[in-house]
Amino acid sequence: MDTNGSLSFLDQIRFTNGIDHCKTIFREIAEKEREKAIHYINQTELYFASLFFLFPEIDELNLYENLSRRNYIALGMCAKILEIEKPFLDIKQLGRKNGRDIPLILNWMFTTGSAEDGINSEYDRVLDAVAALLVIDHKDTSILPFMVNLIFNRNKKGLLNHDLIWCFMKSCNPHVLKLSADYLLSYDPKDVELACKLLSIKMPDAEEWDDMRGRYNHYIAWLNENERYLYHTGESLNLTSEPMYYDVDLNAKYLCKEVLQHNKKIGNPFTSKERKQLKQFLEATENEKRILAEYSNRIYYQDQSLWNKWMHLPLQEQMNVAAAGQGDVR
């Protein structure tokens, strides 16, 4: 935790003397000078962890009405996630999407709170749910780098990371693959093992461990080639021991049209020509589709006029050219 910046009073105590001391000091101040305690808890610099661990004191001292909107909503979220009945926190009225500031508050909870991950099970459960709300409901991709750190840190410690992996992948953002691929370069075999699982690639053979940079480069080259055509499959660790989280939409790759992540559909309406091309493509075998899609994508970026000519050929002729790996259809 970087404590060099501007720290709130309560965070300073927590970092220096621990949570229990922070709780004691807060209670003492609140009993003597209620306004001062409210000022401290509402400081804008406060980290979410301090608010979370002072939840019982805030409840006991009935400080809800004096909380800032950020803190009120954050505790309301905690109560909802942990299924705690708190009459003063009318979370039903909050509604998860009511208020433009809700994503900002959730983001504050996660980004200032993730450093304390692992401190207890309830806290981790809140972090997981907040992350899920951010990436799935609010499409906040800014937290993905924080999430990947948490996933791999928990993996090292043998802690539960399945829910976090689920929402990380369900963000429907192929960038998560790049973030996971970075761990192929780790010196820790546990990181590499998890990275391989997240990327749906096989574990390195004995000799491949010596060239993880090469393996990483190979994967990144594949990702760069296919990123536009990837879609989230919906697979998870709840379904299978070997989920393939993202797969290539071969139809999209063949037409060289991007897959829209929000609905997994190929972007932009098809022209009549594209519909015709797709119709003949769908008649090909799976293996032929792979060859055609790969070839189509390759020449599209090399020479679009060449690609146009190739796309106008009958399927069998397309296949002959693609299988031969020829670049010239003139």
Binding site: D128, A129, A132, L133, W166, C167, G234, S236, N238, L239
Partner: peptide, 19 residues
């Protein structure tokens, strides 16, 4: 078999699907 629940409430991932 597996019943998948694509639009599950993100707060309750345990209902993302039923084995």
């Amino acid at each position: 078999r597996y019943f998948i629940n694509p639009d599950v409430d993100p707060i309750t991932p345990q209902w993302q699907g039923e084995n």
